[in-house]
Write a protein that binds this DNA or RNA. Structure first.
Length: 344
DNA sequence: TTGTGTTTTATTGCCTCC
DNA sequence: GGAGGCAATAAAACACAA
């Protein structure tokens, strides 16, 4: 009954084996009852042998039934730190002491690595036939080739994960920048809305005073003829869009203003065409093809102050990407109430 | 030379497939 | 149950600064 039927090929176990405690343990037994079986070869069966001893007779590195450890230095290294252990030859019933040197882990040569890399590039999985051939060509154990491919796949996976992470990070950065820009734009527009609202209220109050004064003076009530909004302060480098909209009599501004999906917008009863002022600005020009002569006359007469038109300026509103699409000039849906407040 | 961090080679345990 | 893959890990080999 073997005390140790298997000790794995692992340097750490060599150290354990050679420790004084282990040797003491040996001395406590009749050495002839100990069969020490170690198998030092880079072979897959080594680890499988943990539960199977069949490999011992079949693939022992030395002839005969003697079980022993080969601590051959693959580098042909000089002897140092020599260590020993005992083994039992069941045939000769002789205990022997072997002096050996732990095998050093050797690195593959540059040529071997280059060859393996090339093979890995072709196919990162290793079929048995290819493994055998590579091992033969490179003078390696098939197990070593398999391990090299396994470790190489692990490295490749790590690199791939890093690449994926960098790619996702770049995408995130772009999206974040876009989001921040939109946020700033929104704040700017909100500020403009506030300014416009304030001006509307002021003009509304002035209009009331004006109407009161006129009715006192003439005895008639006339509609307010001054432009409701003439200008809005322009920031540096801002892009300006001027809208000229005819105020149709008895019409009230609706929230569907400028809602047409065509560049030809029907603005308060007047068909308008968007003229590109710059790459990002448009002006509404009356599309007179749909107008009667009277309407054209009215339009030409009533373009400027004291006529029922509104001049609107919008800053930093870039619709160049969607020139023909529905456009509310920066006002959110809920802001359409503002338009209603401009009718008079 | 030595300490320390990184890379490479190899082991181990677990899992899946046939 | 054997073969092979993978993740985690150990340990040797290597690189490099102090």
């Amino acid at each position: 009954m073997p005390l140790f039927s298997y000790l794995p090929y692992h340097t750490n176990h060599y150290y354990q084996l050679l420790s004084p405690q282990i040797l003491d343990l040996f001395s406590q037994f009749n050495v002839s009852n100990i069969t020490l079986l170690l198998h030092n070869h880079n072979h897959n069966q080594t680890r499988r042998a943990t539960s199977s001893h069949s490999f011992l007779s079949a693939s022992a590195p030395f002839p005969g039934s003697r079980s022993m450890v080969s601590f051959e230095d693959v580098e042909g290294g000089k002897g140092c730190n020599r260590s020993f252990f005992t083994a039992f030859d069941p045939d000769e019933n002789v205990e022997e002491v072997y002096f050996h040197q732990p095998e050093k882990k050797r690195r593959l040569s540059a040529n071997q690595v280059q060859f393996l890399e090339k093979s890995f590039d072709e196919e990162n999985k290793l079929e048995p036939e290819r493994k055998t051939k590579l091992a033969k060509d490179l003078d390696l154990e098939p197990r070593q080739v398999a391990i090299w491919f396994q470790n190489r796949r692990a490295r490749w996976k790590t690199k791939q994960l890093e690449k994926d992470y960098e790619s996702l990070q770049a995408t995130f950065d772009i999206l974040k920048a876009n989001y921040d820009n939109l946020l700033k734009e929104k704040e700017k527009l909100q500020s403009q809305v506030a300014t416009l609202t304030e001006k509307v209220l002021v003009r509304g109050r002035q209009g009331e005073d004006y109407k009161e004064g006129e009715s006192k003076r003439t005895g008639f009530e006339e509609p307010l003829q001054k432009p409701l909004i003439e200008s809005v302060s322009e920031g540096e480098g801002s892009k300006i869009c001027v809208g000229v909209c005819k105020q149709e009599e008895n019409s009230s501004a609706k929230s569907d203003i400028l809602d047409s999906e065509s560049p030809h917008n029907h603005v308060n009863g007047v068909h308008s065409t968007m003229l590109e002022l710059s790459d990002s600005s448009y002006v509404f020009e009356a599309d007179q093809t749909d107008l009667s002569q009277d309407e054209e006359d009215n339009l030409s007469k009533n373009l400027f102050p004291h006529q029922p038109y509104m001049f609107l300026k919008f800053e930093d509103v870039n619709y160049s990407d969607h020139p023909g699409s529905s456009c509310n000039f920066g006002f959110m849906e809920e802001d359409h109430t503002l338009w209603s407040s401009w009718s008079y």
